[in-house]
């Protein structure tokens, strides 16, 4: 209790976590570390929204097994039209996201030691040199980007069938599907690792912050960097 009698007033020293997380990241505020500033979170969820939209409008075209998804949007004819626009929106948002995170996603020497199999064993022994993103996360970022380029470029002839030869479109269908299958598998892994598999991760994309303990466990080097080694 403060002298003024206002509950909690004594703890109010400077801006709150939410104030800081609005435009800064990689800073420690109290018990929390800001991992994603507000604009990063917004672009992530924009990409996610368009991705899910494109997925749900594309899957009923891919196979009648998912035909029920078309009803969410008003039928398959709507999907055929909407899918293309959602794909363009997704691609545009992904490009923005790319420039947001590019500087953090460059591979370094330490990334070469990363083994996905060892990582998935969830053993206690963590590489102390993992920075803000580990090599798996960087690989996911780049692969999503290349898949986006592949699916966008093969999607254009499928969008305007009369403007492109059917021989080209034949190849495009196959590559478009390959990109989709990769995406589906990758996104399941992404969602799983970001929620159930690693508790404390999801809040970094909602509230924007993680705990010190989380940072020390998953990203030791980043933790040392942001805390100045005082951990």
């Amino acid at each position: 209790m403060s002298e003024l009698g206002i509950p909690g007033a004594s703890q109010r020293r400077g801006p709150t976590v939410m104030d800081v997380a609005r435009d800064r990241e990689d800073v420690v505020v109290g018990d929390e570390i800001v991992r994603h500033k507000l604009s990063s979170r917004i672009i992530h969820w924009t990409v996610a929204l368009f991705f899910v939209g494109a997925l749900l409008t594309g899957m009923p075209i891919w196979s009648p097994v998912f035909g029920w998804m078309a009803y969410l949007f008003g039928g398959l004819s709507v999907c055929r039209w909407l899918h293309a626009w959602l794909g363009v929106a997704f691609s545009a948002a992904t490009v923005v996201m790319f420039f947001f995170w590019l500087s953090d996603m460059r591979f370094d020497e330490n990334d070469k030691k990363f083994s996905f199999i060892d990582y998935l064993k969830f053993s206690a022994a963590e590489d102390p040199n993992v920075g803000k993103y580990n090599a798996g996360q960087k690989l996911f970022f780049w692969s999503i980007l290349f898949a986006m380029l592949l699916v966008l470029l093969t999607g254009i002839p499928l969008w305007w069938p009369k403007s492109f030869s059917w021989r080209l479109r034949q190849v495009c269908i196959v590559l478009h599907d390959v990109g989709f299958i990769y995406w589906f598998v990758a996104i399941v892994g992404h969602i799983y690792l970001g929620t159930a598999a690693e508790p404390g991760t999801f809040r970094s994309m909602t509230r924007g912050t993680v705990t010190r303990a989380w940072a020390r466990l998953h990203h030791p080097k980043w933790f040392r960097d942001v805390t100045g080694g005082r951990g």
Binding site: F184, A196, G200, R212, A213, L217, H218
Partner: peptide, 20 residues
């Protein structure tokens, strides 16, 4: 495989929880 793989992985290796 992706969906069941994630479920199976969760059961085999559990969540990776930080303990401060």
């Amino acid at each position: 495989a992706a969906i069941f793989g994630a479920i199976g992985h969760f059961m085999a290796f559990g969540p990776k929880k930080p303990v401060d």
